[in-house]
Computed example of a mutant assay.
Amino acid sequence: MTVKLSPARSAAGLAVRLTLIAAMTLLAACSLPRSGPSKSEIYSGAVEKGGNTHVIYVNDHVARTTNFTPSYGFSNSFRGAGQVGADEIRAGDVLGLSIWENVDDGLLTSLGNSSTALQEIQVDSGGYIFVPYAGRVQAAGNTPDQLRQIITERLATQTPDPQVTVTRVAGNGATVSVMGKVTAQGVYPIERPTRSLSAMLARAGGVSIEPEIAVVTVKRGNNTGKVWLTDLYSNASNDIALRPGDVILVEEDQRSFTALGALGGQTRVPLGNESINAVEAVAMVGGLNSHLADPTGVFILRDEPEQVASRVLGKSVQGSQRIAYVLDLTRPNGLFLARDFLIRDEDTVYVTEAPYVQWQKRLAALIGPINSANAVQNLAQ
Rank of each mutant, 00 (worst) to 15 (best):
V250Q: 04
Y72P: 02
P295I: 04
S275C: 01
E101F: 01
V182C: 08
N102D: 15
A117D: 13
E252F: 02
A140Y: 03
R331G: 06
V166L: 07
A117S: 14
N378K: 13
A262V: 00
P7D: 11
A156K: 14
T53Y: 07
A324V: 09
N172C: 00
D303L: 15
K4N: 12
L249I: 14
L327P: 02
T2I: 12
I209H: 02
S237M: 10
R322G: 09
Q321A: 05
T194K: 01
A174K: 12
D239F: 01
G45A: 07
I42E: 03
T157C: 10
R90T: 09
L271I: 02
A184N: 14
T224W: 04
N172G: 13
A338M: 04
L363R: 12
F130A: 09
T159P: 04
S275H: 11
T230S: 12
S75N: 12
V62A: 06
A364P: 00
V164F: 02
S256W: 03
L97Q: 02
E306V: 08
E153F: 01
A184D: 12
G272A: 09
E191G: 09
L18N: 08
A262K: 03
R344V: 05
Q146A: 13
G112P: 03
N102M: 14
A364M: 10
R331P: 00
I150L: 14
S71T: 15
S320E: 13
L147T: 03
Y57G: 00
P144D: 11
R64P: 02
I121N: 03
F257S: 02
